[in-house]
C-alpha cells in the first residue's frame, strides 16, 4: 500500500502543522475529490480548499496536502457540516454548480466554506448590523457572495434583489416560531419546481412546553402541502433539539 507523503509540515510562517496528514492510507480516508480537489472528508473532519492562501476567516485551523491549503470546517459550529458528517444524503454537485439562497448567514462562517466550493452565486441574507458588517467585508474579497441586509420575512424585497437568477438550492438557518411559514412564503413567491431545500429546524423555539415528537409531527403536516420530504437527519450530538430536513418542492 502506497503511503501518501506530505512535504509541508510547517506553515509559510514557520508554525508547526498537526500530523494528521503525515502518513495515512487510502482505505482509511473517506476521500471525496472533485475535479479541482476542493473537498476532503476524513472520518469526522471535513476540510475545504482555501480560496486565499494563509487567510483565516474566523480563526480556524489550516492544513496542507499535495501542495494545497485547506481550512477546517467544525461541525459544532455549522449545521450544514454536522449534517454532512452524520449522513451521505447531501448533494455536492448542487452545492458547487447552482445559485444558492442562504438565509441566516450571520458572520459568514459557513458561507465562506460554501464559497470555496461554489462556482456560481450565493445570496446571503442577514438582518443584524454587527454580523452584516463582517459579511460585507467578506464579500469584498470573495466575489461569490452577494450580501443582503434585510429581514428574511420581507420576501418580495428579496425577490427584487435576486432578479432573474434561478435558485437551485435554499439553506435556511433561522430559529423562531415563523420558520415554517417563512419557507412556505419563499416557495410560493421565489422558487420553481423541484428545487431542493436544506431546512435546519429548531423545535424548542417553536414550542417549549410540548414534547419534540409532537412538535415535529405538527410541523411536518404543514410542510407536506407544498413539499416532498426526502430525509430527516438528527444533528445530535452536535446540536440539541435540531433536525435537518431535506425537502423538494412539488
Amino acid at each position: 500500500m502506497k503511503k501518501i507523503k506530505c512535504n509541508n509540515f510547517k506553515n509559510s510562517k514557520g508554525y508547526k502543522v498537526s500530523k494528521n496528514f503525515k502518513n495515512f492510507k487510502k482505505d482509511d480516508l473517506n476521500a471525496f475529490f472533485n475535479s479541482n480537489e476542493l473537498f476532503i472528508r476524513k472520518g469526522k473532519n471535513i476540510y475545504t480548499k482555501n480560496m486565499f492562501k494563509s487567510v483565516k476567516v474566523y480563526g480556524e485551523r489550516l492544513f496542507y496536502f499535495k501542495g494545497f491549503e485547506f481550512r477546517e470546517w467544525n461541525p459544532y459550529k455549522s449545521k450544514l457540516c454536522a449534517s454532512i458528517v452524520k449522513s451521505d444524503f447531501i448533494d455536492f454537485d448542487l452545492l458547487s454548480n447552482s445559485n444558492i439562497l442562504y438565509l441566516g448567514a450571520s458572520c459568514g462562517t459557513t458561507v465562506s466554506h460554501i464559497s470555496d466550493l461554489n462556482y456560481k452565486k450565493i445570496f446571503s441574507v442577514e438582518i443584524s448590523y454587527e454580523m452584516g458588517i463582517q459579511l460585507v467585508g467578506l464579500s469584498r474579497t470573495r466575489k461569490n457572495i452577494f450580501p443582503i441586509i434585510e429581514d428574511a420575512r420581507n420576501v418580495l424585497n428579496i425577490k427584487k434583489l435576486i432578479g432573474s437568477n434561478r435558485i437551485g438550492l435554499v439553506i435556511l438557518d433561522i430559529p423562531g416560531k415563523f420558520q415554517v411559514d417563512l419557507i412556505n412564503d419563499i416557495a410560493i413567491h421565489i422558487l420553481k419546481k423541484h428545487t431542493i431545500i436544506y431546512f435546519s429546524i429548531k423545535l424548542s423555539s417553536i414550542n417549549s412546553s410540548k414534547s419534540l415528537r409532537e412538535i415535529l409531527n405538527i410541523e411536518l403536516v404543514k410542510l407536506k402541502e407544498i413539499f416532498d420530504i426526502k430525509n430527516i437527519i438528527s444533528l445530535e450530538p452536535f446540536e440539541k433539539n435540531h433536525y435537518m430536513l431535506i425537502l423538494r418542492k412539488k
Binding site: 452565486k121 459579511l135 460585507v136 457572495i145 450580501p147 443582503i148
Partner: peptide
C-alpha cells in the same frame, strides 16, 4: 451581475443602523 452593487446597498443601510446607542 457583480456583487459590488449589493455591497453598496448594504453600506447605505448600515449607515442608518449604526448609532451611538450601539457603541
Amino acid at each position: 451581475m457583480k456583487n459590488e452593487e449589493f455591497v453598496k446597498n448594504c453600506e447605505k443601510k448600515l449607515s442608518n443602523l449604526v448609532t451611538e446607542e450601539k457603541l
